[in-house]
Design a binder for these strands. Structure first.
Lengths: 294, 294
DNA sequence: CCATCATGATAGGCAAACCCTATCGAACCG
DNA sequence: CGGTTCGATAGGGTTTGCCTATCATGATGG
């Protein structure tokens, strides 16, 4: 039964019988009959079929929600038992927004020091993808904005709050100011994250609130690109303070704080909501919460 | 896998291999190997074994929580698919505190009128048992106090608030008063519910607050017994107003309201918390919430 | 101290389920 | 119309599941 549900999840994700089968390491006929049996057991059609995959039926959509929960909880059960057998050990997958990568790395390093037998995969993703990955069981936890988008059923632990800085070459007209405001940035040639990043949308909003239009003449989904462009001259970018410091050191760049009217957006760990949590997630949430107190 | 988890649930409940097997309709060796396989798959021992069942290990306790969720969600998945196939039809099990039985019956009757193909089992239980039954998947929903005990992870819909009355023979010294207070009941020979019922504990507390000691000379877990004792003469009992009216009519008994200082305890539907709910539970919760507005 | 009982584990055999390879049939594409 | 993609179906070997029968171990009691 559970293996059928896993097949169903794979099919819903891949939207293709062959690829779904391959992703599970079974052949296409196996998956095909598996789905058919699942439909027979539940007594409803889950998948629309023509001569190819035609999407889920409404019942299929509904069943998908339950399947995710059941399969997710089963994996968590297994994981938890493995932990009680081997102690905190295994693999943790983290999906992180680009501007929080240094914090995620600190989080993982700290956790790793305490629990040396846990290893990590850290992926850079935008905040929307992170939520999708949590839903699809493709990541164990995320690091993202906590207060800005509907997060759904998740547990969170705040790690820090963002404040922004202008990163520029020292000869930039604003570079020697102690502090600037968003409005000061009116004519600056900027290099910013792509609009699928929430950070970019926050910056856009800050510009709008200041009554000026954003002028992103160069976009990237990587903060490394932003800073290397700034270093190559003629550009400036806006980054959270901690990240600016990390990336700009050694390149002879100037960092100028931008005045903040309200408290910055909270950033922290996001994990699928469960009662109870597995021991690793519990420990990771504690570790993340501890960082905010430093 | 899921069938193994069901075996594990049955074993945890029965605490006996043979009976657990019987309750599932399999033989004892089947269940025995099933548990053994589950332990092998999870890599931990779940059950302590001597020559007989020796309780769950700590890992087993932990696994039990997950197993309940996984098996419960699987049943809900099946149920929901059945509903999308056949419409609202099937069987709904309700566990109800004795003093709310008439309301539960109204709830079920109203629901039944709207959804004729759903039938009911209504069991009278104390509030503690109701929570246990919800946990063990032995009932689909309960009707109980909402504001008094830790309810755990449940959804609720308030139906009404209790107010108490004295039920007595007309010759009782308090019977002709418009309203009495708890303190007035000092010397009365009372017939009350057993102390495992929360209603009784509430009454005890009311007496304590009024500075008098409860004098229950006759106890029962059935309100029918209470009222029939009152009718047989020489006794009085305390019941929620609605129930007093229902049970006392036709027996020539007097009903005297007891003055209430604060708003009465909320009573309502209690269902396992899930996101999303199954269609039946959704409908039942709506039906229950609607009753409070009448 | 031995006979009996209760309880769970183990062995052997049969049936069902599972998953593979091979193949088919329908839609789509140039 | 020939080629290609995609999912369904058929047949067969292997595995799993469940049953009956039996065994091993403590507890119970005379």
């Amino acid at each position: 039964m559970i293996s059928k549900l896993e097949m169903f999840l794979a099919l819903a994700k891949e939207r293709h019988f062959g690829r779904a089968a391959e992703s599970l390491g079974v052949t296409q006929p196996t998956l095909s009959t598996g789905i058919k049996q699942l439909e027979a057991q539940l007594g409803v059609q889950l998948v629309r079929r023509g001569s190819r995959f035609g999407g889920l039926t409404p019942e299929g959509q509904r069943a998908l929600t339950w399947a995710r929960r059941i399969v997710g909880d089963t994996r968590r059960l297994r994981e938890e038992m493995r932990f009680s057998r081997e102690g905190l050990a295994g693999h943790l997958r983290l999906a992180v927004i680009p501007t929080a990568l240094t914090w995620a790395s600190r989080l993982a390093a700290g956790f790793s020091a305490r629990h040396p037998r846990v290893d990590f995969t850290i992926l850079s993703r935008n905040s929307e993808d992170i939520l999708k990955m949590l839903e699809n069981l493709e990541t164990d936890a995320g690091v993202s904005y906590l207060d800005n988008e509907p997060l759904g059923r998740v547990s969170t632990a705040e790690m820090y709050r963002e404040s922004y800085t202008l990163v520029s070459t020292p000869d930039h007209p604003l570079a020697d100011r102690d502090e600037i405001s968003w409005a000061d940035l009116g004519g600056t040639r900027l290099c910013l994250l792509t609009p699928d990043m929430q950070n970019r949308r926050i910056i856009n909003k800050a510009f709008m609130d200041a009554g000026i239009a954003p002028v992103a003449q160069m976009e990237s989904n990587s903060t490394v690109v932003l800073v290397s462009h700034v270093a190559s001259g003629g550009w400036a970018t806006i980054l959270p303070g901690h990240l600016a410091e990390f990336l700009a050191t050694g390149h002879g760049l100037a960092i100028t704080p931008i005045r903040q009217e309200v408290e910055g957006h909270a950033i922290g760990l996001v994990a699928p909501y469960q009662e109870p949590h597995t021991p690793v997630l519990e420990a990771l949430l504690r570790e993340a919460a501890a960082m905010s107190r430093d």
